[in-house]
Amino acid sequence: MSHIIALTAGLSQPSSTRILTDAMSTASQNELEGLGDLDVHIEVIELRDFAHDIVDNMLTGFASSRLEELKIKVIAADGLIATTPVFSQSFSGLFKSFLDVLDQKSLINKPLYLGATAGTARHSLALEYAIRPVFAYFRAATVPTAVFAASEDWGDTAGVSGDLESRVARGAKEFATLILGNNLTTTKAIDELETPDFETLLRQGGIEF
């Protein structure tokens, strides 16, 4: 049994980022079932629906009940699909803001399948030099193939081109193989009591008082 959370940071409805997320999710489910996992559940979550909760969390330091529930789902998932539109050669502010309110230990060794969209293929390297390094900080187990989709990758009926479909399938195979063969210890829950208080953090930084 595999429970996957697919996070999409598209801002419009519908968005090309959501279309890419759905393609990656379907391909991943097919690969997992093909490898013998017949009980696969993929839950797609639009981060735009949590935008106000995320901002409130950043301003107050406290998560709303619905945002806390989302965090718990992400932490407990067997794997994570994450997609973002590319703005100014990097991920969207909404995408980064959600990562900013996650605990640093949330994604340790968690299989991760990345995707991004933009109007032109000139932004494709943003996946490698801007987005992938952030998840390296979280110590997630990111699959080698990340999927970038530009405007020319979409058909007239919101379908996908053959090249994009091939990239999605390759990444999904890597993702499914990693999930089913992952013997590393992944984070499944965060013990809030382990978080040091401010005084302890100051002492760790060499400040005595």
Rank of each mutant, 00 (worst) to 15 (best):
N109M: 09
V101T: 08
F87Q: 09
F98Q: 11
F98A: 08
A82I: 14
L114W: 08
T84L: 15
T83Q: 07
K105N: 11
P85Y: 14
P111H: 09
K96P: 14
K96Y: 07
A82F: 13
L114C: 15
F98W: 08
I108E: 01
S92C: 01
S106W: 06
T84D: 15
F98Y: 10
G93C: 03
V86S: 13
I108A: 02
S92Q: 12
A82W: 12
V86W: 03
V101M: 07
P85Q: 10
S106T: 03
L107F: 11
F87V: 10
P111A: 15
V101P: 03
Q104H: 00
S97D: 15
Y113L: 15
Q89K: 03
V86I: 12
T84W: 12
P111D: 09
P111N: 13
T84C: 15
S88K: 14
N109K: 04
D103E: 01
Q104M: 07
L102N: 03
K105V: 11
F98N: 04
S97V: 06
L99D: 06
L107P: 02
I108V: 14
I108G: 01
L114F: 06
D103F: 00
P85S: 13
A82C: 13
P85M: 11
L112V: 11
T83N: 12
P85F: 10
S92R: 05
K96F: 05
L107N: 00
F91Y: 11
Q104W: 07
K105Y: 05
V101E: 04
A82G: 10
S97K: 01
L99Q: 08
V86M: 03
Q89N: 02
L114A: 10
Q89C: 03
D103H: 00
S106V: 03
G93N: 01
F95L: 01
Y113E: 07
S97P: 05
K110P: 02
L114Y: 02
N109T: 04
